[in-house]
Amino acid sequence: MKKIFKASMMAVLGLALVTTSVATPADAASKKATVVSTTALAKTAYHGKKGYIYSSAKLTKKKYNMKNYKYTTWYGTKKATIKKSGKKASLTYITSGKKHGWIYSKYLTAGTAPINKQKRLENTIVAYNRAVMLGSSSTKYYATADLSDSYEDLGDCVIRGWEGDWAIGDTVSETSTAKTALLAAYNVFKGRFSSSQNANLAAMAKSIENTQVTANNIDDVQTALTSFSNTLGGVVKTLN
């Protein structure tokens, strides 16, 4: 008798578990959002820090997590009003390059995204070191920066890499390649300073670019390179 009762109870429990675990079509449908209306939006720049971006306004599939794109500028072109779980909400259709989708409007902030300063510094160092590789062996040795350097450190590298003939080299060939490298390094930072600093650097760069290195003027050119690198390095230190 006990065995029969125990078996009956197990059968009832099993049926209850199966009944509660199977989702009905009505349950699945209730999780979808209903689109009430859609309107066009004048192309507007947005950025955000959180919230999922969905493939459609029905919110059935997540494509991206905005927390991974907080330095990305998105552009909104459409608005939608949806109804989900009995509540209305506003969505915005956003795009960035090939990425696109719908996100709750409350997660967006108008305007372009902030600059990822650390990433920009790292990219600057990579580009600067690429320019340095155009220089003489002495310039490469003294001017190359580490990826972990700050702008203060980077400015010191610029100054050190062309600080006299011991860093530039003492031949016409070495001075010419050092000149090429310094002008390339300048182009990495060009336009990132105040208007007066930009104008001053541009004038110095033009003068150096228009001067051909010869045995007769090598000392003057090296002095000009040192002066230019000191000026450039000094303002690089002020970047952030």
Rank of each mutant, 00 (worst) to 15 (best):
K2M: 13
K3M: 10
I4V: 10
M9D: 08
L13K: 04
G14H: 01
L15Q: 11
T19A: 15
T20G: 03
A23W: 04
A26C: 00
K31N: 10
K32P: 02
A33W: 02
A33H: 06
T39Y: 03
A40P: 00
T44D: 01
T44K: 07
A45P: 12
A57Y: 01
K58L: 10
Y64A: 04
Y69Q: 10
Y71R: 02
T72L: 07
T73H: 06
Y75P: 10
Y75Q: 12
G76W: 04
K78V: 10
A80V: 04
A89R: 05
A89S: 13
A89I: 00
S90R: 06
K98Q: 08
K99A: 14
W102M: 13
I103V: 15
S105H: 12
K106G: 11
Y107P: 04
G111N: 07
T112W: 03
I115F: 05
K117Y: 12
K119N: 14
R120Q: 11
T124Y: 06
T124K: 14
A127K: 14
M133L: 11
L134E: 01
S136A: 02
T144D: 02
A145I: 09
A145F: 09
Y151R: 06
E152W: 14
E152C: 09
L154N: 12
W162A: 02
W162E: 04
G164K: 14
D165I: 04
W166S: 15
A167I: 05
G169C: 05
G169Q: 07
S173K: 11
T175H: 06
A178V: 05
K179P: 00
A181S: 13
A185M: 09
N187E: 13
K190A: 05
F193D: 00
A199G: 00
A203D: 01
M204F: 06
S207E: 08
I208R: 00
E209A: 12
N210T: 14
V213D: 00
V221Y: 06
Q222C: 05
T223H: 15
A224Y: 03
T226W: 10
S227W: 04
F228N: 04
G234H: 09
T238C: 02
